[in-house]
Design a protein around this nucleic acid. Structure first.
Length: 460
RNA sequence: GGCGGGAUGGCCGAGUGGCUUAGGCAAGGGCCUGCAAAGCCCUGUACGCGGGUUCGAUUCCCGCUCCCGCCUCCA
């Protein structure tokens, strides 16, 4: 069984055959750093993080690029609104994204190119397009000639003749056709600009991704990913630019579904965004990652606070097993991934089924622990640990409980002392006293569990 | 108007032409426990509506209703 992935361009699930055997090159559209990251951004990052981890687990040498669009209309607009330099706003938001990825255990990309650092590559690509009569300079801008590219619309299933043009006729400016899109935007007074043979200006959104993807991954690479909302026009335009210029470009197009709130896609313009930093104030990162990563990556996801609580409980079940098993077996033994887990992820990353396999192993492990079957428990323990790692949900990968080391030491000392006092009370059948101590710990946010080998405790 | 996706039990969320009809959360019963907690076992409640194909459809086809995404900055 080999990996099969849903390709938006082919509109079907295809076997994954990389350009180069044993290697996988991935370009994921990262954010435009116009504002703080919301959970929708994280959902996309997590989806492709799981793809990456699965490729690594399958033996691939993976190169994953995730760009940062650090110059665009919204950034300039928001910076003006806040009276801060555009580059300062971009840098601040870029850091916020990095913090979000880190908190949710998204592996750092192999490279993280920024648009403003790749103007020469963009100029080169524009020159190739102009030379091939697929682009033209006009009125300080450079446009792609959509009618010159016969396959335009193939990725998104749109037909140029059917497309609405939102622009009023008088706004079309120097375009030859309303569908033509800007590769490069001529400088406006007071805006940042970079020199080009066609005049100073700044990058159009679509151009940068084509230029950066081929700069680092070559003219033909394996996977291009991003949110479903990018299929048109962004990815359609990328295909047009790169293929018209003679590059093979991406061989598989993967798109993740949207995160909705109360039936609507979340985005800053709707004013209902769920900023990651705020969510992490009221939920553990493990729960957030579980919630965003557990459904299939291609289905839409309805964000809800109830869902967050459920995710926390479901993850807690896995976590609980791991810590109980660790008390018996120490570090998890090496174990092969269960076949049903492998089959699930190979089938277009069917994470829901994969998580089903995780829970099956958890139940088997819990039963083994209850029966005192150490070997069976250890096997399940190793399997669960291995599976969870592929999903990026290993408890130890997350920063535990914040707090500083000193406070943790106090807790680690104080709690066992209280539990010893309680155990003494239980021995002399003073259950009132024992319950008083347990209640006190519960009030402090700790759960006490009595087991045959003594009491254990954890954060509620 | 054009393109695409979806409607599953109290909730989330998979999946399949019939078979033991995922998994989680919640609920009820049992075991365990001093009582709990954790864990294990058991239980119930499904496939939007109307047709069609079929021996048989939640699963395939047609129509309808509703929802969502894209067509404009957007993961």
């Amino acid at each position: 069984m080999t990996l099969r992935l849903h390709d938006t361009l082919a509109r079907s699930v295809r076997e994954f055959v990389p350009v180069e055997q044993g290697r996988a090159s991935i370009y994921v559209c990262g954010p435009t750093v116009q504002s703080a990251p919301h959970v929708g951004h994280m959902r996309s990052a997590i989806a492709f993080d799981i793809l990456r981890r699965w490729l690594i687990a399958s033996g691939y040498d993976v190169t994953l690029l995730r760009n940062v669009t650090d110059i665009d209309d919204k950034i300039l607009h928001n910076a003006g609104h806040e009276s801060v330099p555009w580059w300062a706003l971009a840098a601040r938001n870029t850091r916020a994204f990095t913090d979000g990825y880190d908190a949710l255990n998204v592996l750092p990309p192999t490279g993280e190119p920024r648009a403003t650092g790749h103007v020469p590559e963009m100029v080169e690509l524009m020159q190739r397009l102009i030379d091939a009569d697929h682009a033209y300079a006009a009125g300080g801008d450079v446009y792609f000639d959509v009618r010159s590219f016969a396959d335009y619309g193939r990725l998104s299933g749109q037909r140029p003749d059917q497309m609405l043009s939102s622009e009023a006729p008088d706004e079309a400016g120097a375009k030859r056709d309303p569908l033509d899109f800007a590769l490069w935007k001529g400088a406006k007074p007071g805006e940042p600009a970079w020199p080009t043979p066609w005049g100073a200006g700044r990058p159009g959104w679509h151009l940068e991704c084509s230029a950066m993807a081929t700069r680092y991954l070559g003219p033909s690479f394996d996977i291009h990913g991003g949110g479903l909302d990018l299929v048109f026009p962004h990815h359609e335009n990328e295909v047009a630019q790169s293929v018209a210029a003679g590059d093979g470009f991406a061989r598989y197009w993967l798109h993740n579904g949207m995160v909705n709130t109360s039936g609507e896609k979340m985005s800053k313009s709707l004013g209902n965004s769920l900023v990651v930093a705020d969510v992490l104030e009221r939920a553990r990162p493990q729960a957030v990652r579980y919630l965003l990563g557990a459904p299939h990556y291609r289905s839409d996801l309805e964000w809800s606070e109830d869902g967050l609580a459920e995710a926390d409980a479901a993850y807690g079940r896995i976590e609980n097993f791991l810590s109980r098993a660790a008390e018996v077996a120490g570090p998890p033994p090496a174990a092969a991934l269960p076949p049903e887990f492998v089959a699930a992820l190979d089938d277009d990353l069917a994470v829901p089924r994969a998580i089903g396999a995780v829970h099956d192993a958890v139940r088997a492990g819990n039963s083994a622990l209850a029966a005192g079957d150490k070997d069976a428990a250890a096997t399940a323990y190793g399997e669960v640990a291995a599976m969870i790692d592929v999903l990026g949900l290993s408890p130890h990968d997350f920063t535990v409980g914040g707090g500083d080391a000193t406070l943790r030491h106090v807790v680690d000392t104080l709690v066992p002392a209280m539990l010893a006092t309680r155990e003494a009370a239980r021995q002399r059948k003073d259950f009132a006293e024992a319950d008083r101590i347990r209640d006190a710990l519960a009030a402090a946010g700790l759960v006490v569990e009595d087991t045959s080998s003594g009491a254990r405790w954890r954060l509620a």
